[in-house]
Design a protein around this nucleic acid. Structure first.
Lengths: 336, 336
DNA sequence: CTGAAAGCGCTAACAG
DNA sequence: CTGTTAGCGCTTTCAG
């Protein structure tokens, strides 16, 4: 026989091939594949060996279509490079995996428009969706919430929308930070603001104004969420007259710290500094950063479980709030 | 009519629903959906509005099955938390997106067994696969390479296997680092080894022994790839008698730096230190880290393009090697 | 315990 | 330009 025309796309091996090879019906193959029913041990064995003789690999698309669900849960994050989201994803993946599912991650690059688009796309693939810290306008969220989409949102609360959510207790975190600073004698603190549209930023501001009731003087400076932005804003921070600065998160704090160090400003002797989130690097900074630990793995796990319930048609899922914990290290000190 | 039994799973809206609503055939709907053919403007418009009136969302599974491809490319990384891979993923996603596709990421958690399993799983979903720095045994790789799987591997070269790969020029990177150190007068350097099974580690060692030919004395210490490991090995590094330490990567270097700082060891006055990869944090360290920049976005883009060619049935893809660049900062200094 | 056959939602010829 | 109609690979009744 003439050699097949090269590059002759090796036809996909299907369940029918396996059935033929094993001398069984496709139904039977499907059964052993799904570990269901009671297939005669002998037959099952033949099927199994036929499967790996042929290197059979079930088509996810076909299974998904036939089953009516993909076994995939989608996750949309604003920035994959942020370790904050890794831990969430990891924990979520673990939950999904233990249920025979998997996670499909996408990165919206902090762009609300892309976010909306990807959400739509993700929904075509996944059975349920986790939106991490979504920046998209309320209206978009509302549109999805309406259609009974299996959606779960983290780090954002949307008033008056039937939207399941899990949030972190940023409020308490900031209060703890403020209390700590106040006990050290600080009276005037500077808050470096996070991204404009981040709910987390709003929460922090809300808490901060609460702290003012306790006699703490709070000034703010627009900044952002990255090390670069922290580095850039550091000189201005110095001029605020505050004796302590509360950075939006650890990245910002690290940037501030780097700049301070270059400027010869000593932390905490000259000025105290705090972060938020407790990323790994926080404790390796010089000095190690006082920050607020957010149990992201717990968040991820809770999200996985909640989504499971939601997709199972579960009604009334309780909104959850994950507690945080103050981590005092040496970037904060008593006012001399 | 009696209220429908609650939780009555809202039936999926299909192309048929849209067709009916728009008074067209499914074929026509499919056409406007795919932007193909020439559909009468009026009809197309009716279809389109029917689509969003109904909130229609094409099923990825059905499309995938019918088309015979999913438009998805899979990526497997050993650790999502490593920024090294983000940039690759981001660049790859961009390539995929611009071709109407998307990327499905999974994390093997540095476990070769999981790696193999996930690879298999990923292949059921994706049209092609990018294996980043795979740790799995050669035999496993060989098994896949055989079946003509559209596979691309980065950061690992496998002798005698028909496996497409894109690698980074670690060899040159280490040589550049050694040359730099030698010019500063260093004669005895310590290399902190990376993960046992990482091809990248082997390459670095190979380069290091090449450097010995130039009169550089190289000693090594097992370490790893994380900040923690760097932190832990730092004291031992001090006892090696070396005047400069070459850390496996920036993370390790950062850990070493943190410990040195605690120990009162000054960098580079007392000892020089280098990293590898140039992660963001490298330039914010105190002192900023001398390191080797790896153009990860380029790697990701190249990978995307190569995979495109491979999946298109392209024969003989040239193995590519991405060049690196030395970044001299202040963590290295002349020997006093 | 096993097989036949009807879809799952969509695409892609193939006819009009 | 538009509609009909086979499949895509797998699951799942429904008979046997």
């Amino acid at each position: 026989m003439v050699a097949s025309k090269r590059a002759k796309r090796a036809k996909r091996i299907t369940i029918a091939d396996v059935a033929r090879e094993a001398g069984a019906s496709v139904a039977t193959v499907s059964r052993v594949l799904n570990g269901v029913d009671t297939v005669a041990p002998g037959l099952a064995e033949r099927v199994r060996s036929a499967m790996d003789d042929l290197g059979y690999r079930p088509s996810a698309a076909a299974q998904g279509l036939a089953r009516g669900r993909s076994g995939t849960i989608g996750v949309l994050v604003p920035d994959l490079a942020n370790p904050y989201f890794h831990d969430i994803i990891k924990a979520l993946s673990a939950v999904a995996r233990s249920a025979g599912g998997r996670v499909l991650v996408m990165d919206s690059n902090e762009d609300p428009a892309v976010e909306r688009e990807l959400t739509e796309d993700l929904l075509r693939y996944a059975d349920g969706l986790l939106l991490c810290s979504p920046r998209m306008p309320r209206a978009d969220l509302a549109a999805m919430a309406g259609r009974g989409t299996p959606l779960l949102v983290t780090n954002r609360q949307v008033q008056g929308l039937a939207l399941h959510s899990i949030t972190v207790d940023f409020f308490r975190g900031i209060m703890a930070l403020c209390g700590h600073l106040a006990r050290l004698g600080h009276r005037r603190v500077l808050y470096l603001e996070g991204p404009r549209h981040a709910w987390a930023n709003g929460e922090r501001l809300r808490a901060l104004s609460g702290a003012e009731a306790f006699g703490l003087d709070v000034v703010t400076l627009p900044c952002g969420s990255t090390t670069d932005e922290g580095y850039a804003v550091a000189p201005a921070a110095l001029e605020s007259g505050a004796t302590a600065v509360i950075a939006y998160n650890d990245f910002v704090a690290l940037g501030v710290l780097a700049r301070f160090s270059e400027l010869g400003v000593r932390v905490p002797d000259d000025i105290s500094l705090t972060g938020f989130d407790e990323i790994d690097m926080a404790r390796f900074a010089a000095p190690p950063l006082t920050t607020v630990a957010v149990p992201r793995d717990r968040l991820g796990q809770a999200a996985g479980e909640a989504l499971g319930r939601i997709m199972a048609g579960g009604e009334d899922i309780e909104p959850e709030t994950i507690p945080v914990e103050l981590r005092v290290r040496s970037s904060t000190g008593a006012l001399s």
